[in-house]
Amino acid sequence: MQETHCQRYQDRIVEAVTGPVPAEVMEELHAHLSGCPRCRAQWEAFSEVVARLREVPEPRVPPGFWEELDRRLQGATRGRRGGWQAAARAAGLAALVAFGVLSLASSPHPPQDTQVVSPSVQALLPQVAELARVWGAAMDAKGEPR
């Protein structure tokens, strides 16, 4: 009887030690754990494994990989409406323009590429703009990545 009862909590123990769970699930689990040494032992054992798995740091993205990915995507998606590269570069440039990084004084006419990005898409980019800015700046610093 107790065996079956506890089996119900096995999945929940694993769910709770591996990541977010709904509050009510957590409450019910805690209530059971406080009165069941067997499940508490399970909890501890699984927690230990999870702690070991989480010890491994995030793999680093090798330097230059985003630029490489950009070149590869350009090759793979070539041929539609000027291709991905022009648009990708434009996204970076558009963000640069949006952030005022490109000086209007030194560039009375914005680069042709910015025309690819409509103002309406620029407006969709609040979260992406910072990434695009960094990315666009890196591309500009290295010249045309072809």
């Binding site: 690819v116 409509s118 992406v128």
Partner: peptide, 10 residues
């Protein structure tokens, strides 16, 4: 709008 895909990639 192709640049929207570029934004999603980034």
């Amino acid at each position: 709008e192709e640049s929207a895909f570029a934004a999603l990639v980034i």
